[in-house]
Design a protein around this nucleic acid. Structure first.
Length: 597
RNA sequence: GCCCCCGUAGCUCAGUGGAUAGAGCACUGGCCUCCGGAGCCAGAAGCGUAGGUUCGAUUCCUACCGGGGGUACCA
């Protein structure tokens, strides 16, 4: 678990002294980690070492706490040590410690809150998220994975690792031919079957392909035989898949070769639309990984199957090739190569896993609950490939319930009955959409009713946080107008900051590094969002109670004025530090920090 | 059937072994001669049920009740 000592030499020193005190007292080794007390009036930091030692030392925890305190070489920054409750040892730090924090934040700027790792410890983390099939537009639910995956990636970066944001494009296989068929039929103005994809996006893709490739795309078989499913498929001279039961069920009105070529072009067009929407959401990927190009055409699937076979993980049965996933905890063994020679999607998954593992040290998958069934086989596949258990991480997020005026909306790409992400982003704005998803954990099923989100938008907590930032910006502008000397941060006497609201704000500002580290470790974006909300609240309280720029009053004596100015300067820089911390938190969530609202 | 997630304030959600369980919305009552009232202060209200582990459980385990999802030589 992340420890505050990691970010702060003062706390590291205190932690070390606690450990030394335990040894000096003849107590067993114990975790000397510092924690934040829930109640701020208990102190700035606390240790539960005495409580933890009660059992092994067979002594009353309060006695142990007393022993610990007796042997503790209290550093100068600790102003007060107290034993409380069942055996907590609380530490109150000197005001000067918090006040210096303001300078540190101002110096570190945008870097404050982030940590760095040495080359030895730094990992390349592959973060795969969204990866929705490119057979239709992204709907609102995908927005959750976009916002969350992207923010988690940002958090992992902030914790000091390198990140690759990756989208896996399912642009191969039967569904692509069927998608192509749908586009062809729409382009010709013919009736769609039950298995076809529909919706406005299909129409738009059809129009787009017509204008770039001409009408013949939909009526004449291509010169070159195209394959949607790669090396495993067997084709006749006319491009028709042989021995493929799916073709028999395909639409007789569309030549399979036309369906395949239109499918490939259409899927790429749809993928581009998805990329555009994600960009509008503030999400930009490092890698768009094509299943067709990267796994089928490249021969990676055959290589992966061969590798798995060489590792002794596969066997033949009924003419098909199975992977022994039950050896690694899966419910049943999974087919890699069907009896007709075509690879399954699972074979693609294995090959993709292998490819990613060659490029990264740690693999993170963010999947929706509808893919929960894949987890077992995916982990088993990873084990079969020799990927260590602790280097692959699959997180399941609960689905978003889409509502329209309180009524559930059944989402289906084939039926084209969706609420598109781009519509929602246009209507309520990126910040609202992102924040709506980021402020709650992945395990929560969230309702998303466009009407409600749009209507409540002015009461959305994101505005509360942004308002705090805008308010400080306004303060800075005001100070400017009054001729405030901005260059004088070092002249400010920060020891003047002793008002309870000032100290509370200082303590809140100190919390960012630990919050970021914990949020990154737990992959929990809501931690940071809630922190930002609390910080905003703390600032608003400070701002209500503590006047920064003294109101003008001609009757004031020069002495009084000088005092007010000195205090105002300190408060001004405290506010500027708060603005920086708010901006840093929002930046990690990829939510804007406006100067004005 | 089996597997996964969730039941915390009237509503939406935080809180992954510690002290008095927190926010927002909604409700009630206060606060602008002054830096942004998109704000602040005060009030009322809660851990689904029953056991277990522990010095200590909202948190971990078991059962039950309630809600959602997953279980293919599908794609």
């Amino acid at each position: 678990m992340a420890s505050p000592a990691t970010f702060d030499p003062v706390l590291a020193d205190l932690s070390e002294r606690i450990r030394a005190a335990l040894i000096a007292a003849g107590l067993p080794e114990a975790d000397a980690a510092l924690e934040k007390p829930k109640q701020p009036d208990h102190g700035d930091w606390a240790t539960t070492a005495a409580l933890r030692l009660a059992k092994p030392a067979k002594r009353n925890p309060r006695e142990i706490a007393q022993l610990l305190v007796d042997h503790l070489d209290v550093p100068a920054v600790v102003e007060e040590v107290s034993i409380a409750g069942p055996g907590f040892v609380n530490f109150r730090l000197a005001h000067s410690y918090h006040q210096e924090l303001v300078r540190r934040i101002l110096v570190e700027g945008a870097v404050y809150g982030r940590s760095t790792k040495g080359d030895q410890d730094r990992l390349t983390v592959n973060v795969e998220f969204v990866s929705a099939n490119p057979t239709g537009p992204l709907h609102v639910g995908a927005g959750r994975w976009a916002a969350t995956g992207d923010a988690i990636a940002a958090l992992i970066e902030a914790a000091g690792d390198d990140v690759v944001r990756e989208y896996y494009v399912n642009d191969a296989g039967e569904q692509i031919r069927r998608f192509g068929e749908s586009v062809v039929l729409v382009a010709r103005g013919e009736e769609l079957g039950d298995d076809h994809y529909r919706g406005h996006a299909i129409v738009e893709v059809a129009e787009q392909l017509r204008s770039t490739h001409g009408e013949s795309l939909f009526t004449e078989a291509p010169d070159e035989v195209v394959s949607v499913s790669g090396g495993g498929a067997k084709h006749g001279t006319d491009g028709r898949l042989l021995e493929d039961p799916e073709v028999a069920s395909g639409d007789p009105r569309v030549d399979p070769a036309i369906g395949a070529s239109v499918g490939i072009l259409g899927v790429e067009a749809m993928r581009q639309r998805i990329q555009d929407v994600l960009h509008a959401m503030g999400v930009d990927y490092d890698v768009w990984f094509s299943e067709r190009a990267g796994l089928h055409d490249s021969g990676a699937i055959e290589e992966a199957v061969t590798a798995l076979t060489e590792r002794g993980e596969t066997y033949d049965a009924d003419g098909a090739l199975f992977l022994r996933t039950t050896d690694h905890g899966d419910d049943k063994d999974r087919v890699l190569i069907r009896s007709d020679g075509r690879p399954t999607y699972f074979a693609s998954d294995c090959a993709y896993l292998r490819d990613k593992w060659q490029r990264a040290d740690h693999l993170y998958y963010l999947l929706g609950a509808d893919h929960h069934g894949y987890v077992g086989r995916l982990l088993a596949a990873a084990a079969s490939l020799g990927i260590p258990e602790d280097r692959i991480e699959i997180r399941i997020g609960q689905l978003v319930n889409l509502l329209r005026d309180g009524q559930p909306v059944r989402m289906s790409k084939r039926a084209g009955e969706t609420i598109d992400l781009d519509e929602v982003v246009d209507e309520v704005g990126v910040d609202v959409v992102r924040y709506h998803f980021l402020r709650q954990g992945l395990d929560t099923q969230v309702d998303f009713d466009l009407a409600v989100v749009a209507q409540q938008s002015m009461e959305n907590p994101v505005y509360y946080v942004q308002y705090a930032h805008a308010r400080i910006s306004s303060l800075i502008r005001m100070a400017d107008e009054r001729g405030f000397d901005h260059a004088a941060a070092d002249d400010a006497d920060l020891s003047l900051l002793v008002h309870p609201a000032e100290l509370e704000l200082l303590t809140a500002l100190a919390g960012l590094p630990l919050t970021v580290a914990e949020a990154a470790e737990l992959r929990a974006t809501q931690r940071l969002a809630r922190y930002a909300e609390e910080l905003a609240g703390t600032f608003h309280r400070f701002y209500t109670e503590c006047r920064v720029l003294a109101p003008e009053d001609p009757d004031r004596s020069p002495d009084e004025q000088a005092q007010l100015d000195a205090l105002g300067r300190s408060r001004y820089w405290l506010a500027v530090a708060a603005k920086q911390v708010l901006a840093n938190a929002l930046s990690l969530l990829r939510v804007s920090a406006p100067e004005r609202m």
